[in-house]
Amino acid sequence: MKSLNGFKPLAMILPGLLLAMFIIGYPVLDLANTSLQEVSRFGQLRGFTGFDNFAEVFSDPLFWGSLKRTAIWTVTVVLGTLVISLPIAIILNDDFYGRGVARVIIMLPWAISLTMTAVVWRWALNGRAGLLNATLMDMGIMTEPIEWLAEAQLAFTVEMMIGILVSIPFTTTIFLGGLSSLPQDSYEASMVDGATRWDQFRYITLPLMKPFINIAIVLNVIYVFNSLPIIWVMTEGGPANGTDILVTYLYKLAFRFGQLGKASAISLIMFGVLLLFTVIYVVLVMRDEKDTAAGEDE
């Protein structure tokens, strides 16, 4: 009976585990294998070449450019998202007229695929007829339409702002979950203790939200680092690779230029970076769970 009890839960998790291991595990091994071989455009492996593919990647200025932009993209979007989302979550957690409507509107970008969002923005930013130009000209902010996506620096900036916009709902959701778990009586006690609203934010909200902020940072870093559709749909990394980040560059190498060995090498490098972020995340989550468990023991 005892051995059966141990077996039953294993049997319950096994089918899903097998599928996940197969669909996620096989590609990782295949990429590792491919990255060490010479590969034809059509995917035939032509024998081991050691770390030639990696060497090629590291001597490629486009890789370094993409890497730099990936860093800028990730840091800007994540920081921008956090700075905007925390006050928004605090507002949405409070009771005010129209809160339900506000919540729905703030969460809307999450409901829509990044692809669609990017397609719509690509049209809205159209240099000749785009409605953003129309709006800004109607408001008298400018007299001539602007080609938003024709110049790399401007296009990249716009893309980062859209990146922030679409990351806000998820981040706000994490913060709302966090805020709703904060002990209400701590706020009452602090009112009696003489805290102003600012004191409450500084000494209670912020420290107690720290685990949620940490998790929001790590998750957003992972998502933003991996985000392809916005840049791909709006500029395809152009003009002249000026908005390429690692994922778009990787996609081009693999499916446009057929440089499969090099693409595999970049995939593996990214996988490594991602793994590092993930380990940070897992450690954060586990630590958090341990704290909660310790608290519940009482």
Binding site: P183, D185, S186, E188, A189, S190, V192, D193, G194, A195, D199, Y203, I204, P207, L208, G295
Partner: peptide, 25 residues
């Protein structure tokens, strides 16, 4: 000063900081 039913101690502060919080403010 108030003593709450569920004590309402600040979970992230040490006992010392809990007790000294009002004076710190």
């Amino acid at each position: 000063a108030m003593v709450f039913q569920n004590y309402a101690l600040y979970p992230h502060m040490s006992i010392f900081d809990n007790m000294g919080f009002s004076l710190k403010l």
